[in-house]
Design a binder for these strands. Structure first.
Length: 854
RNA sequence: GCCCGAAUGGCGGAAUUGGCAGACGCAGUGGACUCAAAAUCCACCGCCGGCGACGGCGUGCGAGUUCGAGUCUCGCUUCGGGCACCA
């Protein structure tokens, strides 16, 4: 046993991750090496990871997210890009407020303490962020410009106020945007939101619905899954609006018209009743003074109290009430009863629906329940009814003993002049009916979106104040630009239940228009407004004249690689796309889309595949790996164990394996260095067989690595480097010191050290200097050179198949012709084709030859 | 209900996009070194049969296209995800 654990018997220094990591982190800091070059002569690359919410120290999910981004950024630097790689904190938000209440402190203190801790961990991980570009969204220098942009949107008509029933989270004591209610629950705390009628601030994201949908097709670098989720969320439906006249009591058509939206105008003749949403403002007048009034109003009242969750998870039993009123079907003059039904949504379409039970499952169920007629109008061609009613234009069958709504594709029957046409969504009949309605002036083609406007008002303290002033005389007016920012007061007693409405020094002000005493808005903006444009601010973080200068933004945008969790597939990524488009329309930046390539990394789960959570007690903190093994082992493990977009289970054994590899590779590099010469020129022609083999492996590895980094397939890039280390080790075993090619040893060692630099930067940096005698920083070194043509041998082993089964192998010169291969194949396959007739021989150069015999 | 993915050894995962399935690593087995252990190094490592050379089977299931299918087509199964009374 050695008394000197620092040195092996071969005089090789031990790999001591703690010592070298501390050392290089200090040097990187002291020499400010991560500063962005800002060299316009170089091609730019903007690499960005979704900035964290500082709720505590970083967890494994963060470590994975940032390791991926750092590897991309570091490799891009080596490949000669001018790289922007910034970091910051999404620092406003409710958890800070809750923590402040719980610990009787200030939200800002809690936030800054957590940010300091997270920053220390980022530094300990060796992430290469430009410290000069740091952003904290809770600093006035940043949120000032959020307020400024809010006011610019206001000027452009993209901000409006509306009183409407909204989702109120009783536990977070604030309203939620549509996007923030998932599975009928609050996205943050899981409580079931209530409906409340409140005056709200909205951003008009629906103005951009069509473009947000269309431009998804301009994003080939986004995962299909995320684009699909956004398409779903935007929910575009093509259809028609149709006006129905309200009938007078004598059955004639009156002057009042009620409009419905439908995607199936082709089923208009099958409409047998008419539906209104319970919340529809038309309802009270329709039933006023009628015998049905009480029942209808009772239903209206009852549905007000149905929460989002009940609506979602409930038994879905439909409740309806007849209003005693009728409308006239514009297609055939039929009198249709008007019902109020709780399955009709007020905030989609027009809040009124035509009931076609033969074509719609929900209408069918409703008709069954309340004994309303079911008129078949679109019938599958192989259905007996299609024969029975073929060509029938008027309504003969008004009830069908069906068990469910039929497949609503087929041929039209009982549909007047449209009878015989093909029905369905976007069908011939749908178009014809719509065109006819438009001619009559009682309908028009329409597009309807599921996307709603973005409700941005939050009744909370720790956020960006809405820069508005309520004046009794002038109404609601924006805070003048030269008075921005509206600064959030920090000394507020949250634990005593205070919020901004309890701070007169904050809300008491004067009206900027008339000068009379006025009242500041005391609500703040949704924190997603802060994260919707931070990537633009990074391009020009210290600008105090504007959110960012146009030339800075144009230089860096779009983000080339954006990396973050799938949980933001809709919220943050949709809002950011919207915000970028608004900035573009305001002439602030020249791009349509903020993120060219998006990578959604998978989750980090525990050994048993369970999600890590404090309540389960199965959280593996990054420190538990960094302390025993070092940051480089941590980074290597994260990238090696699974491809970035897949979930991976934390496996302590695999981490040990990665650490073992770094020790082995360290030793191999040191041994190569002992036989290496820094000055010797590599002459591939002069290499002996073992050397040539290693040189081929080198070229193969670096070529594969280069390609895999491009595709962000770090796991296979690392495999390739492992193979190169194995090959170098084999070379060292097969040769004596004197026979080794000194130039080759240096060349291969440099290849290993540089190819691993983006992943294990400290390990790499130490070897680069101490063993390979290089100056400057390894992460600024050029990416190792390679030549794919030198990765191959002169002859190649090909498979010989007989009828598709591999039977043997033969070596042939690389590039042998098909004719030669066919000959070689017949000879090699002789054993297996004896007594058979060769039908044909297929040859794939450098791969295989397949002899087909019967 | 509608719309997306995914399925490969004991495990994590490879496979030049139709051309030798299982790279690389983990776990395991045997050996070297050691008084011993750890560490390290060497070898083996899909399943079945055989002492063996070798043979058969094998990428969730069933068909199909092809000289050749993990990869393409059709039909299922299971798991995961998104939307959901959206007319």
């Amino acid at each position: 046993m050695s008394d000197e654990p620092e040195h092996s018997t071969e005089g090789i220094p031990a790999y001591d991750p703690q010592a070298i990591e501390t050392k290089w982190q200090r040097i990187w800091d002291e020499e400010d090496l991560f500063k962005t070059d800002e060299d316009p002569a170089k091609p730019k690359k903007y690499v960005l990871e979704m900035f964290p919410y500082p709720s505590g120290d970083l967890h494994m999910g963060h470590a994975r997210n940032y390791t991926i981004g750092d590897a991309v950024a570091r490799q891009a630097r080596m490949r000669g890009f001018d790289v922007l790689h910034p970091m910051g904190f999404d620092a406003f938000g409710l958890p800070a407020e809750n923590a402040a209440i719980k610990h009787n402190t200030q939200a800002s203190k809690w936030t800054y303490r957590n940010m300091d801790q997270a920053k220390a961990t980022m530094r300990r991980m060796g992430f290469s962020y430009d410290p000069d570009k740091f952003i904290e969204t809770c600093s006035p220098e940043y949120y000032r410009w959020g307020q400024w942009m809010f006011e610019k949107m206001w000027e452009r008509g993209l901000v409006y106020r509306k009183k409407s029933p909204v989702n109120w989270c009783p536990s977070c004591k604030t309203v939620l945007a549509n996007e923030q209610v998932t599975d009928g629950k609050c996205w943050r705390c899981g409580s079931v939101p209530e409906k409340r009628d409140l005056e709200q601030w909205y951003l008009k994201i629906t103005d951009y619905a069509q473009e947000l949908l269309d431009d998804l097709d301009k994003l080939p670098g986004w995962p299909e899954r995320v684009k699909m989720m956004q398409r779903n969320w935007i929910g575009r439906s093509e259809g028609a609006e149709i006006d129905f006249a309200l009938a007078n009591d004598d059955g004639t058509a009156g002057d009042t018209r009620i409009t419905v939206f439908t995607t199936r105008p082709d089923t208009l003749f099958g409409c047998s009743f008419f539906l209104l949403a319970p919340e529809s403002p038309l309802v009270p007048d329709l039933v006023a003074g009628r015998p049905e009034e009480a029942e209808v109003l009772a239903l209206r009242e009852a549905s007000r109290h149905v929460s989002a969750l009940e609506r979602q998870m409930g038994d879905r039993e439909k409740h309806g009430a007849f209003t005693g009123r009728y409308v006239i079907n514009p297609a055939n003059g039929r009198k249709l009863p008007v019902w109020v039904a709780d399955y009709v949504l007020m905030d989609y379409g027009t809040g009124a629906v035509m009931g076609v039970p033969s074509g719609d499952q929900r209408d069918f169920e409703f008709a069954r329940q309340y004994g309303l007629p079911i008129i078949p109008v679109v019938v599958p061609e192989d259905d007996p009814l299609a024969t029975q009613l073929a060509g029938v234009r008027d309504t003969r069958v008004t009830d069908v003993p069906w068990d469910a709504a039929r497949d609503a594709e087929g041929v039209l029957v009982q549909s007047g002049q449209f009878t015989g046409m093909t029905g369905g969504k976007h069908s011939e009949a749908a178009k014809a009916v719509t065109a006819w309605l438009a001619e009559q002036g009682i309908g028009r083609p329409t597009v309807s979106f599921r996307l709603r406007d973005w409700l941005i008002r939050r009744q909370r303290y720790w956020g960006n104040p809405i820069p508005a002033i309520h004046c009794d005389h002038c109404g609601i007016v924006p805070v003048p630009e030269d008075q921005l920012p509206v600064v959030l007061p920090e000394n507020i007693d949250l634990s005593a239940g205070q919020n901004l409405a309890d701070v007169p020094e904050f809300y008491e002000t004067t009206c900027p228009v008339c000068g009379r005493p006025a009242h500041r808005e005391t609500d703040t903006m949704d924190t997603f407004t802060c994260s919707s444009w931070y990537y633009l601010r990074y391009t020009d973080p210290h600008n105090d004249k504007a959110p960012f200068a146009r030339d800075r933004a144009d230089r860096w945008m779009s983000v080339d690689n954006y990396i973050g969790g799938i949980e933001h597939a809709i919220l943050h990524l949709l809002y950011s796309r919207f915000w970028t488009k608004v900035c573009r329309d305001m002439g602030m930046v020249d791009v349509d889309e903020p993120f060219t390539n998006l990578l959604c990394q998978g989750m980090v789960k525990d050994e048993h595949g369970e999600t890590m959570s404090k309540s389960k007690g199965n959280v593996v903190p990054p420190s538990s790996v960094i302390e025993p093994y070092g940051a480089d082992t941590m980074r290597l493990s994260i990238l090696f164990i699974a491809p970035p977009e897949k979930d991976f289970s934390w496996d302590p054994k695999a981490v040990e394996g990665c650490n073992r590899f770094l020790h082995r590779a360290w030793r191999v590099v040191c041994l190569l260095a002992q036989s290496a010469s820094v000055d010797a020129r590599l002459d591939p022609a002069a290499l002996d067989e073992a050397g040539a083999e290693l040189f081929r492996e080198y070229n193969r590895t670096i070529a594969k690595c280069t390609h895999d980094f491009e595709a962000m397939q770090f796991n296979t890039a690392i495999s390739a480097i492992m193979e190169l280390v194995n090959a170098a080790s084999a070379y060292l075993n097969a040769t004596e010191g004197a026979d080794r090619d000194a130039a080759l040893c240096q060349y291969v060692a440099m290849g290993i050290v540089c190819a691993l630099q983006p992943i294990c930067p400290h390990w790499s940096e130490e070897l680069y200097h101490a063993q390979l005698h290089q100056t400057g920083a390894a992460f600024n070194a050029p990416w190792p050179p390679f030549d794919e043509a030198l990765a191959t041998t002169d002859d190649v082993e090909i498979a010989v198949q007989v009828c598709g089964k591999v039977r043997t192998h033969v070596r042939v010169p690389r590039g042998s012709s098909v004719a030669d291969l066919q000959q070689v194949g017949r000879t090699a396959a002789a054993r297996w084709i004896e007594g058979k007739t060769v039908v044909k021989v297929i040859a794939v150069p450098d791969r295989l030859v397949n002899v087909v015999a019967r």
